[in-house]
Amino acid sequence: MKLEKVTVAIENLLLDPNNPRFADISDDVLNIDKSRFAEPTIQAAAYEKMTNPKFDVITLANSIATVGFVPVDNIVVGKLNDNQYYVIEGNRRTTAIKYLLKQHSLGQTTLSNDKIEKLKTVDILVVDDSENATEYVGMIIQGIRNVSGIKEWDAFQKAQFINDMIDKGKQPGEISRTIGMSVKEINRYYKTYSVMLQFRTDEEYAGKWKPSYFSHFDEVLKKPALRTFFDFNDETFRFDNITNLKRFYEWIVPDEEGKATISDAHNVRRLSELIHDKTALNYLDDRNLDKAVNYINQKYFNQNKITASECLNKINSAISAFKNILAEGLEKELSEEEFSELKAGIESMNENYKRVETLKNNGHKSV
């Protein structure tokens, strides 16, 4: 990786109109050709997106106004032409500087001449000017900092980055070594991105698509029963049962009152208990998750009354499975979400054990 340090005028530093972060605030397709990056309209649109409150550029600008621009991390750029560069890493810092200079020129804030002069030029690192090298090295830098780094992108942004890498011919193993994510996680993000793209391009539901639905589809793909219900295709990474898929869209998209049948990704896990029962599905189609869950719970209770000994046998099986995680070294394969789920389950069991202990002791006292 070849990086050259140069000093450039801030006006010649262009924001990236294809910044992956924009997926979180806009449904625009991020495929603007590099030859058009310098167009004023495109730069104005990128600036407007970067000043969205979600990116908190104003806070950063206020910090720079107070203490000056401290280049703890270099702004990394690609060369567009002899005078202009486009930002690969550091769009937020670049926007903050442009914002301060704009506010000063409009009289909305007043900075000293010394601060103004210092902000007009910045030191940057220019990636190798080879077309392919610039693009690939830029992706590596973004991946290291934002996929597995200290300032992580949201799940959909990570998945979009991984999808872009794979589209450029990179294998999951190579991506794993580059950005520090496991191959298992990379494949998971890629598959979920694919079904999200299917949602995003649906003629009927595309307008209701949001990046935040990523976790809903991630939960679907974790459950074999749900993958079967939606007929997940292991070759195309798409769902083939369009009828059931559109039902799912209806369940997660808010109605006219802003209420969704399945408003939380955690509730998607409950679906595997409901999809095999026609009555429960009817309740779901009527936008009543609670009624569907209560119906299944009552039905299960009536059909599966068990003894304390049977419960204890199941608990012992779970304990044995937990011990196997340690004995086989399987803890290395647990994702962060799986680990969190395991932790929550154990904490819940501890609370329930205390209740059982209290109730049993009270029962002995009353005898």
Score class of each variant (00 low, 15 high):
Asp167Tyr: 11
Asp167His: 12
Asp167Gln: 10
Lys168Cys: 07
Lys168Arg: 11
Lys168His: 13
Lys168Leu: 13
Lys168Thr: 08
Gly169Phe: 09
Gly169Lys: 03
Lys170Ile: 14
Lys170Ser: 11
Gln171Pro: 00
Pro172Phe: 00
Pro172Ala: 04
Pro172Thr: 06
Gly173Lys: 08
Gly173Ala: 08
Glu174Gly: 01
Glu174Lys: 06
Ile175Phe: 06
Ser176Ile: 08
Arg177Val: 05
Arg177Pro: 01
Arg177Ser: 14
Arg177Asn: 13
Thr178Trp: 11
Ile179Tyr: 02
Gly180Glu: 05
Gly180Leu: 06
Ser182Phe: 00
Ser182Cys: 02
Val183Tyr: 05
Val183Ala: 05
Val183Glu: 14
Glu185Cys: 05
Glu185Ala: 14
Ile186His: 03
Ile186Thr: 00
Ile186Tyr: 00
Ile186Ala: 01
Ile186Arg: 04
Ile186Pro: 01
Ile186Glu: 05
Asn187Leu: 10
Asn187Ser: 08
Arg188Leu: 01
Arg188Gly: 14
Tyr189Phe: 13
Tyr189Met: 12
Tyr190Leu: 07
Tyr190Gly: 01
Tyr193Arg: 09
Ser194Pro: 01
Ser194Lys: 12
Ser194Asn: 11
Ser194Met: 10
Ser194Phe: 02
Met196Val: 08
Met196Trp: 03
Met196Leu: 13
Leu197Asn: 12
Leu197Ala: 12
Leu197His: 10
Gln198Gly: 07
Phe199Asp: 12
Phe199Gly: 08
Phe199Gln: 13
Arg200Val: 05
Thr201Lys: 09
Thr201Glu: 11
Thr201Phe: 02
Thr201Ala: 03
Thr201Asp: 07
Thr201Tyr: 00
Asp202Ala: 02
Asp202Gly: 01
Glu203Thr: 12
Glu204Val: 15
Glu204Thr: 15
Glu204Ala: 11
Tyr205Thr: 06
Ala206Gln: 15
Gly207Tyr: 11
Gly207Cys: 07
Lys208Tyr: 15
Lys208Glu: 13
Trp209Gln: 10
Lys210Val: 12
Lys210Ala: 10
Lys210Met: 09
Pro211Val: 10
Pro211Met: 00
Pro211Ile: 03
Ser212Leu: 10
Ser212Asn: 09
Tyr213Leu: 10
Tyr213Met: 08
Phe214Asp: 04
Phe214Tyr: 15
Ser215Ile: 06
His216Trp: 10
His216Ile: 07
His216Asn: 12
Phe217Leu: 13
Phe217Ser: 08
Phe217Gly: 11
Phe217Asn: 14
Asp218Trp: 10
Asp218Tyr: 09
Asp218Asn: 15
Glu219Phe: 04
Val220Leu: 15
Val220Ser: 02
Leu221Cys: 03
Lys222Phe: 00
Lys222Ile: 03
Lys222Gly: 03
Lys223Glu: 14
Pro224Lys: 03
Ala225Lys: 13
Ala225Gly: 04
Ala225Met: 10
Leu226Tyr: 02
Leu226Arg: 07
Leu226Cys: 06
Arg227Met: 09
Arg227Ile: 00
Thr228Val: 13
Thr228Ala: 12
Phe229Gly: 04
Phe230Val: 01
Phe230Thr: 06
Phe230Ser: 06
Phe230Ile: 02
Asp231Pro: 05
Phe232Trp: 14
Phe232Gln: 09
Asn233Cys: 12
Asp234Gly: 02
Asp234Met: 04
Asp234Gln: 10
